[in-house]
Each structure stands twice: as structure tokens, then as C-alpha cells.
Design a protein around this nucleic acid. Sequence first.
DNA 1: CTGAAAGCGCTTACAG
DNA 2: CTGAAAGCGCTTACAG
Lengths: 390, 390
Amino acid sequence: MTASRPTSPASPPTASGTARRPSVKDVARLAGVSVGTVSNVVNGRTFVRAEARERVEAAIAELGFVRNATAKALRTGVSPLVGVAVLDLANPFFMEAATGMERRLNQDGCVMALSSTHSDVEEEARLLHALAGQGVRGILLTPSDTALTVAHEVVGRGIPVVLFDSPATPPDMPSISVDDQKGAELALTHLLGLGHRRIAFLNGPRRVRQARDRLAGVRRAVSLAARRSAGGAGRPASRRPSPNDRVDLVEIPLESFTANAARDRVHQLLLDAGIHAGPAPRPLPASFPTAFFCANDLIAFGAMTALRDAGVRVPTDVSLVGFDDIPMASEMSVPLTTIRQPMEELGWAAAEALFATADGAPVGHRKFLPSLVERASAAPPPDRPDQSGR
Amino acid sequence: MTASRPTSPASPPTASGTARRPSVKDVARLAGVSVGTVSNVVNGRTFVRAEARERVEAAIAELGFVRNATAKALRTGVSPLVGVAVLDLANPFFMEAATGMERRLNQDGCVMALSSTHSDVEEEARLLHALAGQGVRGILLTPSDTALTVAHEVVGRGIPVVLFDSPATPPDMPSISVDDQKGAELALTHLLGLGHRRIAFLNGPRRVRQARDRLAGVRRAVSLAARRSAGGAGRPASRRPSPNDRVDLVEIPLESFTANAARDRVHQLLLDAGIHAGPAPRPLPASFPTAFFCANDLIAFGAMTALRDAGVRVPTDVSLVGFDDIPMASEMSVPLTTIRQPMEELGWAAAEALFATADGAPVGHRKFLPSLVERASAAPPPDRPDQSGR
DNA sequence: CTGAAAGCGCTTACAG
DNA sequence: CTGAAAGCGCTTACAG
């Protein structure tokens, strides 16, 4: 009365003609052991007798058995799936980061389910719910929503969420970010060190946090430089203020972090300075900035284009510094000096934080330091005022 | 003797302090119905009595019940997870395509698990095995391996695979590709129509299929044009061969489809033609190509950079046509005329093919037609030979 | 060291 | 129209 190979009335539909995938039961039968032993072998339990293990391994090989991850997930309550929700799949920054996340996730046998929120709060909510319904082991999220409402809800359901590219420090979610202020400070200090004193900051829109933080960094570098020169090695009181010490900084916020916005704006700037398009080099007025710090590489790209359209040489006439170090930065017509965000490392760290939190580590908030990468687009300023008299 | 709320000896570990996620059982109890009825409501079965349905819905709302997708997958044998394996996450082409895939997948309630093979056959194999072990509903694969060995194995296991950006036509896998030959033909026909007769084809390495196909298309357009002019409206036999009809085509294969490779090569070409770097426009020798067709947009970008570095104007002195229409194409210093691959549509179609195949539709191989998008980088050729005598 | 059994959370014929 | 029960493929105390 043993129901060997029972035809279950509730057996799930199988693709017609496709052989059913072998299960532990099949392996157990072939190896002449119980399913528990098969499971123990599959999970590398050391106490299995060598002889039994061998028979099981042979059976596994013969049947081509592969453990059903879904069943394992249901039984153990942990899924290998990790959801990753970024703002935009087409953005190099996120894709570099995703590469890092994937590497770390794979190391722990997890699989990355990458999707995009398109910077939309509604879409973010839908995606978060869908992922939670999937029973993912965790979610790596670049939030569009500063309120983090749905994210908190998900965490409340027991699914860890780590905030990526966000400086938020909620008590229940680790976060990974880079110090935008320090990055901007680095860029400006570099330009100042090169001798630039008339600098324009081509920023993104103020409503985005990165733009605000980078502006703060720019200002900080300028005031730091002023203080340093005021309190220099000589006798501070007697030191006559040199024209070289006064920094002329202007912020120019664009409507978006794009090449087009930057190109149009710089084109206009050039027109205002009396420089019209044309490839022949012509002298820039002394009042024109000798350097542009750009809030990201795309902006730098647009600026470079506009400058070159007008016959302005980079870096001979004007220096340029970007932010991000996307792959294109080194491929621009003049390789871009920029502030590097360690994108892959950031991604790796986010995945790391997920595992750590799941293991009960306290919720941490890591802030990475960006670094300067010097290429060809920034050089000492031209000696414009003296250029005719020399 | 009813074992109400049994403390299973084998209950899975739950995160400490976290409330267990409500299950159908909890909902059933609260609503005073059986779990089967809960399931029927959740699945929108129409035969459920209105009164029962309402009670169930109320209970679902009260408990915040979300169906466990893992259990559903185990029971029904179908997972909502669809694996997507592309060559490179940082490549705009794949990311645009992924956007299309995601949209179509989401429409059927599937979630995309995107990863990269880094164009490596070994990695592809590992990834395919991992995805299969996950019990994915299907896989969208851009193959690095022309043998398709692991892919066939996966299909043999009952997991449908669709080939993306591959013209292969195996009997067991649908494929989606774009007609590279036609695309190249389109580009060349455009250039020819504009009046260009001295054209350089900046190709990628011949070992990649796309490069070979695009070369074939370029050649086809040229021979078609020759035939057409030979057999024109007039008396073919009496027609004197006009210098305008002879097409001077040269293929220049690069080592990679990158901007850097293109820039270096074009820089060298310019040097060979006696043109040295410098922003001042100078006459190009008559032998210099009046147009470059580039095997992808990145190559066009590099070529544009090198040309502009030498003071060569685009399109006044030299025309440029690209291939792909990546987002950057329209942001270049002179917006690029290019051959558009319908990237999102391709991705959508791949997902579509997966569902169709799973529904038993015959394995199809769709080939998309690329299209010309005219922007600013291509114009009629300059009248170089006459330019001094005019 | 190993087998038998329970149970993860669902869905689905089947009986009523 | 609904309930009771089986079973998807695993893992894991428990008994031996």
C-alpha cells in the first residue's frame, strides 16, 4: 500500500514534455538513503558517513540534481534575492555602484534584483512593496523620498533596508554616502593651489541635496584659503593684502545636472563676455573666470563643449574640474580632472552593510571620502591682465 | 485534539523581536473562513460569495497581509523572477534595453534580476547556473558564447531562455536582434545621398559579429549605388562615368568600440594628411575623406574630438554618422546624426518573447530594423578640389 | 550517524 | 459556494 510515485491530485502544472526537475526525494531513492541525509550532504554537514556521502554525491551527479532555491527559501525563511532600487538605470554612477553591489552580493550567494524608481516617489513605493512581497532578504535603496515612509514600513515588516547615496541617519537603516562637501572642497583647494582666483561654480539645482552640500564645500575651501593667507608664515599684521589672495567666486546653478544645460549656460556666458562662436582663439576679458568647477562630470562635458565651440582652450585659457569620475571623464577631448567618487566601493559597502545589519550589527552610517584625480583639464591660470603688456 | 497554533519543532528562525508576517491562516482565522477561501479571494476568483469576500478583505487589510510569493512559487512551480544577463551594466545600450525589459516584465507581475556576464564565458556559465538554481521563470541572455552550450542545458532543464542582441536561430530559443547590415546600409545611403564619395568606415574589431555585419551593409550600399547610377534613367551604355559616381570607401577597423581608440586613430589620420593639432581651420587635402561612418556612437564621439582638436569643422569640413543613438548622441558638441537601434523596444520584445514561448508559441527570431536619425553632424560634402580656384 | 516526520505558506482538485 | 486535505521541495530537531 505504499504510494510510490503518487499522482498527486494537486500536482502543479509542468511544462508539457519537460522532464520534472529531480528533487531530494529522487536523489535519496537512488542513493538508498533518506532525504535528510541528502540534505545534510548538500549542506556540507561534516557528520555524514563517507560512504553515504559518496553514494549521495554519485546520485546527485547522475540525476543532475540542483537544489530548489525556492523551497529552501520557504523552509528557512531567508531568500537569496536582494532587491536594489536605484534612481536611474541609465546613470553611469548607479551602474558602477551596481557592479560593486553585485560582486559583494554574489560572494554570499545572493542574487541581485536591480530595478529603477525613475526618481519617482510613487514608483519607489510600488517597487518596495513588490520586493517585500517577494520576500527579499533585504533592499538596497536610493531614496527619492526624504520622508522614507515606505522604507520604514518595509523595515517594520522585518526586511532590512540600506540607504544608498543618502546621508540620512535614521535609527533603523544603515546608510552609505559620500562626503559631497569634502569633495567640493578638494576641487576648489586644487584650483586655488594652482593659482586660480576667479572661479565659477557650475552647480546643479539647489533643490537637490548634493548641490547644496557641494556649494557648502566650495565656500568652505574659499574661506579656509582666505584665513590661511591672512595668517601666513610672515607677520600677519604687516602683510599687505595681495590681489592674489582675493578669491572671486560665483555660483551658477543650472536647472539640471546635464551636459545640455551646462553647454547652453556657458555659451551664454561667453556671449555676454563678447566671445562669439568660432574656432579661432581670441583673448578672454580679464573678468572671465579662469576656472570652472562643475558639480558633475556631465556638466563639465557640456562646459567643455561650449568653451571649445568658442575657441577657448582647456586648460590653457580656462581650467575645468568635474565631479564623479564617470568612465567618460577620461575619454573627453581633454581628459577631465575630477573628484572621484569610489562608486564600486560604495556599492560594495552597501551590500556589506546589509549583511552586517542582518547579523545584528548596530546600524551604521558610512560616509566615504571622495578624492581628486588629476588629468589634463586643470592647469595654472593664464596671466590674462599682463598678456598684452609683456 | 486539534493542534491549534502548534509550536513546530522545526519552525524556521525568525528575526528576534520581529513579528511574524501574517499568513493565509491568520487571515482565515480572523475572517472565519477556510484558507482556501482566502486564497480564492486573493486570486480574484469570482465565485466567492460577496459576504465572505468582504470579511476576507477586511481581515487582509487589518493584518496587512501580503501573499508570500516564495510559497506561491513553490506551489505553482512558477517563479516571478526573470533573470537578465547582459554583457556589461555600464553600457548604455544594455541599460536602455533593460528599461524596456523591466517595463514588460512588471506588466506580468515579474521581477527582473539583472546581472552582468562581463562578456566572459565562464561568468556566463556560472550566472546561468545560479539563475537556474533560483528556479527563475526564464532568462534573457546576451550570449558571449556562440556555442550556447550552457544556455541549451538550461533550456533542457525546462527554463526558457531568450537570446538578446543575438541573430542566432537555434530551434529551442527565441532571439531578438537588430539588422546591423541594414543599419549600416542606411547610414551609407544617407551619406551617398548627401553627395559624399570619399568615405571612411571607422569599424570595430572584425572578430565581433556586429563589425562584420555592418561592414557588409556598408559594402552593399556602395555597390547598390554604383549599380543604380550605372543603370540610370538615361542610356546606360552611352553614359560617361562621372567622377561623382565613383565611391572611394575605406574601412578602418579599430581594436575596440571605444572613443579613445577612435580618437587616437583619427588623430593619426590627420597627422598623416599633414594636419596638425590646433584650433585654426586649415584646408584638408582633397584625398581626405569627406565623411566618416562610425560603427557606434562612442567611436563617433572619439572621431569628433580628434577632428575638432585639429580645427576640422563638423559637418562643414567632414560629416560624421554614428550607430546606436545612445543618450549622449544628442548631447555631443555637434548633435550626432546616427542609426538608431530601438533599444527599449528590443528589451520589451525580448521579455515578450519569453512569455510567448512559455505559452507554447513557436520559437521565433525577431530582427528589428534600425532607423536613421538626422541631427547636425552630417551635411553635403565641401567642394574641396574647387575651393582654391573658385 | 541516520531515518521519519513535521512544517514553511501557499493553491487546487474534490466532496459536499 | 466552501472546507478539508494534499502536496510543492526543502530543512531540522528528535529519536534511535
